[in-house]
């Protein structure tokens, strides 16, 4: 219970689970970058399909991620809507042509095939990275996160703070529950029965002791860490780091190929946009 915040690691034995966390992270980051830069719909569709296949291969059950998935879908839909509302003619200005569906180019609100293609690209950009991120989160042991971050160049102090956060979230949740119960037992109402202002007051009543308790904890933790020489050297090793195996090198090769294709397409398209309207 305490381990799963929104999504949590699930132990299974698949190709994706066996890859090192760093490989998955590098794959996620490099595909995201090339995907964010390019506006080639064919390429985006390709990596979208690719990430869906990987997702399917890693045997993640939809029920495990249904909540986060709903949040992402809602967010993406809302975003697309806003992008259109703020600038319905943006597609026309990018592609330099207009194939109208509704209205004409001189009106502010109009709809063109160019705009639709542009919005479709944006939608793909939002969605193709989601399965990749979920794969990283769900097939990598939390203990390996920090090691992976460090391996791709993030300083180990920052990487370790990720680990410490994961370590203490359940404790802080427990503190929160304890404090909340104690305050309610003194008559502070934070349930839905009370009105908003009363509930807000009740919440403050919990937050303050929670902050003080957490500050105490941080002090002890940082002492405990320096007593065991955290921060002594510029580098550290990781008990949970995974060594790169054949599969990882293979994965790097595939990632590299995809990125190269993406870059080559810039050349072919004479820029970031693939323009089917010419």
């Amino acid at each position: 219970m305490s381990k799963n915040l929104f999504v949590g690691y699930n132990e299974r034995d698949t190709f994706m689970h066996r890859l090192s966390g760093s490989t998955k992270l590098i794959g996620f980051v490099s595909l995201s970058i090339i995907g964010m830069v390019t506006f080639d719909t064919r390429f985006l569709l390709g990596i979208f399909l690719f990430s869906i296949i990987l997702f399917w291969k890693s045997q993640i059950k939809l029920s495990e991620i249904s909540f986060i998935l709903k949040v992402i879908i809602a967010f993406a839909a809302f975003n697309i809507f806003l992008v259109y509302v703020f600038s319905p003619g943006y597609g026309i200005s990018i592609y330099g042509s207009h194939h109208m569906i509704l209205g004409n180019p001189n009106q502010f609100f109009n709809l063109s095939w160019e705009e639709l293609l542009y919005l479709f690209n944006v939608l793909l950009k939002y969605t193709f990275a989601v399965p990749l991120a979920l794969i990283f989160l769900l097939t990598t042991e939390p203990s390996e996160f920090a090691a992976s971050l460090n391996k791709i160049g993030v300083s180990y102090r920052i990487s370790y703070s990720v680990e410490i956060t994961l370590r203490y979230i359940p404790d802080v949740q427990r503190d929160y529950r304890t404090i909340s119960l104690a305050q309610q037992a003194r008559g502070y109402e934070i349930s839905k029965k009370a009105n908003l202002i009363t509930r807000a007051k009740g919440a403050v009543q919990i937050i303050l002791p929670l902050i003080f308790t957490s500050l105490d904890r941080i002090e002890t933790v940082s002492q405990a860490m320096s007593l065991r020489r955290f921060g002594r050297h510029n580098k550290r090793t990781w008990y949970m780091a995974r060594r790169f195996k054949m599969a990882d090198y293979l994965a790097f090769f595939v990632i590299f190929l995809i990125v190269i294709v993406g870059v080559l397409l810039f050349k072919v398209n004479n820029g970031r946009f693939w323009n089917p309207f010419n």
Binding site: R228, R229, F230, G231, R232, H233, K235, R236, T237, W238, Y239, A241, R243
Partner: peptide
């Protein structure tokens, strides 16, 4: 502490 001393895995 061994990690901090850069001991091998």
């Amino acid at each position: 502490s061994l990690e901090n001393d850069q001991v091998s895995q």
